[in-house]
Design a protein around this nucleic acid. Structure first.
Length: 517
RNA sequence: GCCAGAGUAGCUCAGUGGUAGAGCAGAGGACUCAUAAGCCUUUGGUCGACGGUUCAAUCCCGUCCUCUGGCACCA
């Protein structure tokens, strides 16, 4: 059995979970579930980044210890996972000993090999903001903005990682591994970026300025600065299981692709003699009318409320159906409702209900065997074969939105098949031939439904489970064997009516506008 | 500024060297198993602008306009 290791980026605990976090979890979970179904032995890691200046400052502001602050916020992130039916196998926190041990070991090893050196940095420092400033921070007249307070030029000693000397190697690597980064145009951007010379990477902060971090193993006067701490989580979580690490894939937001994941990370691993991940998937952002969604921009809509209102599956379905992985998409309640109503409620939900009703009414609630195959049955069956054959490669290429669209086409055609067969008319006939057609039509619609929900299972796991339950069906252990058209439901006792995706109450009509004076 | 990508029906997008398609939304109809759902039919577009190549361009080339993304080292 092939291993497949997949990670999300770790979330920084200086803030609460929002749609971006939720999307990344759902996307990664969709991939993880799909790979499991395909027979891989999946290991799925997510977690939180708990060190750094901002966490230290936030804790101080609340008057609590940094660890306590991390415990509280991490719990929030952790609580998000079951709400979204995320099937992670592990959850890592960068404050955990298992992580710190690996970070120290890697740093020590690189230090011993001469990959890390100490040097001085001279720059303009803001004591109020506790950070060095850049030339671009200056106002046009050369002074510093008020928020930085007093700015002085100081010299500070730090440790640096020899990033620059691996630049050529990285270019060579990316040139020969064209599918390392998905989507492909992101990989081109990285190569563009690498046309400019790299500088070495500062990896430390003096203890006086930053306490809350992993002390450098070779100099207790410093702590590890962000990247050598955060990025290593992917490795530290499975450091003792090389067969898992060998199949690593990282799902990240496009904002942390260049330079951290596409440049620092491969070079860090190369220098440490650790094998590289198999791939990096950089997804886009959810926008609201063209603006990035985040709390700071004050978008009032909280998309996570939709999980409470419509359930995790509907939310997951929308995210995966609407977003072309890598690109940005708009998120609006209106758009969500369009997908929910037309695809989940009307197309799928209603098909479930009418199938259950007709089976109950015309066959005593037991799915009959198909007895004949005429053109109508054959073309639906052919469409299924085509749908399935296209679906799997689409998912393997992360084209989940298109894959779901194909599933919808199949459901639409199943609804059309029912209209053409019109079992309610066959039920009134006394002809033996019509009775056979009736049984065939009931068997056909049930089988089509079973197949359709099997194929979208990685996106809507709970819905698939519920529909299998009302169909009186227990799927076999091997998912791919479930995708063959056959009489698997023959004899199954179905449940009565079930409304899976109730139509939401129509929005309140806004009161007639007051007459303008 | 430089480098990518995109501009196609109201909306979201697909597509091809021979004068354009889907889904949703809109309109009409027949039906009734069903969540006022489903099915059938149907109204919408000088395919960003201007040139060029070609018998022929939305699709190839050039220029321009607009939009999006990337352009590090933030110690």
């Amino acid at each position: 059995m092939k291993s497949f290791y997949i990670t999300t980026a770790i979330d920084y605990v200086n803030g609460s979970p929002h749609l971006g976090h939720a999307y990344e979890k759902v996307l990664t979970d969709t991939i993880a579930r799909f790979r499991r179904q395909m027979g891989d032995r999946v290991h799925f890691l997510t977690g939180v980044d708990e060190h750094g200046q901002k966490v230290q400052a936030s804790a101080k502001k609340k008057g609590i210890a940094p660890q306590q602050f991390c415990d509280e916020v991490s719990a929030e992130f952790r609580a998000l996972l079951p709400k979204l039916t995320i099937t992670n196998d592990d959850f890592i926190r960068t404050t955990e000993e298992r992580h710190q041990t690996v970070v120290r070991a890697v740093l020590q090893q690189l230090f011993d090999k001469g990959e890390i050196y100490q040097a001085e940095y001279k720059g303009f420092y803001s004591t109020r903001q506790e950070q060095f400033l850049q030339e671009k921070d200056r106002l046009p007249d050369g002074t510093w903005p008020e928020l930085f307070g007093e700015v002085t030029e100081i010299v500070e000693s730090n440790y640096f990682f020899k990033l620059k000397q691996y630049q050529e190697w990285l270019v060579e690597f990316l040139t020969t591994n064209e599918t390392f980064i998905f989507p492909a145009y992101r990989q081109k951007q990285v190569l563009e970026f690498l046309k400019e010379p790299l500088n070495d990477l500062c990896i430390s902060r003096p203890r006086e300025r930053l306490e809350w971090g992993i002390p450098l193993p070779f100099d207790a006067g410093y702590v590890t600065y962000v990247w050598f701490d955060a990025l290593l989580n992917y490795y530290s979580a499975v450091a003792d299981r090389p067969e898992i690490w060998a199949e690593a894939h990282h799902v990240i937001g496009k904002d942390i692709l260049v330079p951290p994941h596409a440049v620092y990370w491969p070079i860090m691993l190369k220098a440490a003699g650790i094998s590289l991940p198999k791939g990096i998937i950089a997804h886009g952002w959810w926008m609201t009318r063209g603006a990035k969604m985040s709390k700071s921009t004050g978008n009032a809509l909280n998309p996570l409320d939709l999980v409470t209102e419509f359930g995790a599956d509907a939310f997951r379905y929308f995210l995966i159906r609407e977003m072309n992985v890598g690109q940005d998409s708009d998120f609006t309640r209106e758009q969500f409702l369009v997908r929910y109503n037309s695809e989940l409620a009307n197309n799928l939900g209603n098909l479930v209900n009418r199938t259950l009703n007709m089976t109950t009414r015309f066959a005593g609630g037991v799915v009959p065997a198909a007895e004949v195959e005429e053109d109508l049955e054959k073309s639906l069956r052919d469409l299924w074969t085509k749908t399935r054959d296209e679906f799997l490669p689409l998912c393997e290429g992360y084209q989940f939105h298109t894959a779901l669209e194909r599933a919808m086409v199949f459901l639409t055609e199943t609804n059309a098949y029912i209209e053409k067969r019109a079992p309610w008319k066959l039920g009134k006939s006394t002809e033996a031939k019509d009775a056979a057609l009736l049984r065939t039509s009931l068997a056909t619609m049930a089988e089509a439904l079973r197949l359709a929900v099997a194929i979208i299972q990685h996106v809507t796991p709970t819905t698939t489970e519920k529909i299998n339950a009302v169909l009186g069906y227990t799927p076999g252990a091997v998912w791919r064997d479930e995708l063959n058209w056959g009489g698997k439901l023959t004899g199954a006792k179905v449940a009565g009516a079930l409304v899976l995706f109730p139509r939401p109450a129509p929005p309140e009509k806004p009161a007639a506008p007051a007459k303008l004076a």
